[in-house]
Design a protein around this nucleic acid. Structure first.
Lengths: 388, 388
DNA sequence: TGCGTTTTCGTGTACGCACACACAAATATA
DNA sequence: TATATTTGTGTGTGCGTACACGAAAACGCA
């Protein structure tokens, strides 16, 4: 009885593996042509809707294609296609005090390497994220290279309108990376739902502090009007308490220039002194490490801190217990997936799956942080080393 | 002054984009051959260490290759190579009561589709995860297909030894998926650090309950000796309290067969009744939804629950607030990345980057869960639909 | 030293599969 | 019957792979 049962299981598993294996055999255009008694060129015409094939012949070929579940060999297709595409990426530059944009840049680099042999070249143009003139000027340089498509971080609404008008006039498709703004015809947005990221930060900080409390939001002046993602995070954070009927409240400290250490230090600590009811600190930009560096250690020990993004400095704060959680947005993958998405659009004529490609909202603790961004290890291929 | 500053920024960004663009132009073997005054076949011999080229000619060619930072066009290489590879995947089957293994299977399917045109065929063989005979029998069927490489979930230590001995005798490379066991020559392990996943579960549940408490661990009997990942999770969970000097304690309830609803219901609720000190429940398997279904609602409202894996049933519990957190392990990606890794190993002769490829330890709440596994949406390619 | 044989070196090119153009053949129309 | 239109074939091309074959150099023997 048991033996029969096991034989049944074996038969079922054999059936599954057999049917799975069959679907993987590559049928070629030559096979289809032979079966339909036409030339390979005719099959190509049907596949690509090129016309010049009679309805009768076309129907016959289509039937055979469907019967075999035919798909074009994308490798052969890529080699045969002679047209080249040029993707230009317009992203903020990174520096030592704000390393956030390094990861998307690395993701773009990896993507560029991966799509090279599909006839797609990628060029990156970086601008100063606080300066709309740099944004526009860099865009103008970008445009001189006559790109096929553009991947851009839409930092400034007004300037973005001007940029987008030019792109649409020139029929250049574009997608937005990291910052989601509405009212444009971008092919897609690739990034995080920043409102929900802030909402989750509210949930986590509330979890750590069981009674209704007061939380401090620390903002750089730059971030107030210019960065849609940051303002969405703040809104999400505040809404967590509103929507869950939690009578916690938030106070906001605006700092003109986070990079001015002594001023920042003085402002934060005196604010904390004036508001001893504060139990936690929320930093909606990617630079919570600066806030940590400025806070007196007695406040650091006492307060719960929560910030965004997995820059090395922020991770260090996580690991030394100054920060309880970071909300991360898979920055490397944002860059990488943007390149892959746009490449698929250009080479396979594949429609974008959604207009909004939301990447995961990652909750990072000191324990899981090292497992999180394994994509950042750009893998060395043996064939780039010639017999060394 | 400001104008000069901006001009400097523009020059720097121009320089970066220019140098980035240059590195992306594909040099071909034909170009190298022309420059070295040899045939393309000779360049091929040097690249692949085939011999039959004089040392002088070889040195000249290598110099030119390095100067141009030449890399083989992997697309053309894949088309030219005529050898085929067969990857066999040995994974547990899924059913309606335990959907965990559906995601890795879908990841494998997507991987198989992606590597088809690189001359790699993938066949999946599934076994009953609680039955070592099924495991062995399925492996024997697998072996009949003469695979080039094997991706396997090493469920049972003893039987895995036997399987691995055969694979090594036949010189078939293999890697472990999802379950990490030591003492074997697997090319890699692809999966989560299950100890750390349990540890983080301990941290999160402790966060929700500020004073030292008592937690219930619910285990199916099957899981005790058979599944290394589950026992590691339990160890990690317990170690969180030990290592952080938290005088919480854990009680364990072992249930013979989680699928027997009435018995499970009775056992859980009477246990909870006998132990009113319990504040939270930890389910180290992927089936916390069964525990939720069995618990009386007054316990559900009162206790914090934490489990593993993002099966649809578990996600439902997350969304209706019965479960506070799920620790997820990117199951789809486990399947997908295993195929990609093994394919690279077989076709590019690329070494595995690490023996342990740890995937992220994802902390899921009801707010971020829908953003987490976007890879599971198997994207439809337009060229699989023939002009419909 | 010269000749025949063996070994080394290198070239040329068919092939993988899809793309798409030049050209020929078949059909329809005036 | 001549012309126009439709249909379809043949094939060079993309870049790398690797084998068949030819040329040159080295070796052994008379």
């Amino acid at each position: 009885m048991l033996e029969i049962f096991q034989l049944l299981i074996l038969l079922i598993t054999s059936f599954k593996s057999t049917s799975q294996g069959e679907n993987n055999i590559m049928i070629t255009i030559k096979d289809i042509a032979k079966e339909a008694n036409v030339s390979e060129g005719t099959v190509d015409r049907v596949i690509h809707n090129r016309g010049g094939v009679s309805k009768k012949t076309e129907a016959k070929i289509k039937k055979i294609l469907e019967f075999h579940n035919f798909s074009v060999n994308p490798v052969a297709s890529a080699l045969a296609m002679k047209n080249k595409h040029f993707i230009a990426a317009l992203i903020p530059e990174y520096n030592d005090s704000d390393l956030f944009w390094k990861s998307p840049y690395l993701g773009i680099l990896k993507g560029a390497n991966d799509v090279k042999s599909f006839g797609v070249q990628v060029t990156t143009f970086t601008f100063n994220q606080y300066d709309p003139h740099s944004y526009l000027n860099t865009f103008n340089v970008l445009l001189e290279t006559k790109p096929t498509a553009v991947i851009m971080v839409p930092n400034f609404s007004k300037e973005t309108k001007r940029i987008v008008n030019k792109l649409e006039f020139l029929n250049i498709p574009y997608l937005f990376l990291n910052i989601d703004i509405d009212g444009f015809n971008n092919k897609a947005f690739v990034g995080q739902d920043s409102y929900m990221a802030g909402y989750i930060a509210g949930k986590l900080i509330n979890l750590s502090i069981p009674k209704p409390s007061t939380f401090l939001i620390v903002q750089a002046r730059h971030n107030i009007t210019k960065n849609n993602a940051v303002s969405n995070r703040i809104k999400g954070f505040n809404d967590y308490f509103l929507k869950n009927n939690i009578s916690s409240e938030t106070l906001t400290l605006k700092i003109e220039n986070l990079n001015n250490s002594s001023e920042t230090k003085q402002k934060i600590n005196s604010f904390l002194k004036q508001h001893p009811e504060i139990e936690g600190v929320f930093v909606p930009s990617s630079r919570i490490y600066i806030v940590v560096d400025c806070m007196d250690s007695n406040y650091l020990d006492k307060l719960e801190l929560i910030g965004f993004d997995n820059t090395p400095q922020n991770i260090e704060c996580l690991k030394n217990d100054s920060v309880a959680f970071l909300i991360s947005q898979k920055p490397f993958e944002q860059g990488y997936e943007s390149i892959r998405l746009m490449t698929d659009y250009l080479t396979l004529k594949k429609n974008m799956p959604n207009t909004k490609i939301h990447l995961p909202i990652d909750i990072l603790t000191k324990e899981n942080v090292d497992y999180n961004e394994r994509n950042e290890f750009v893998i060395e291929y043996d064939n780039t080393k010639i017999n060394s």
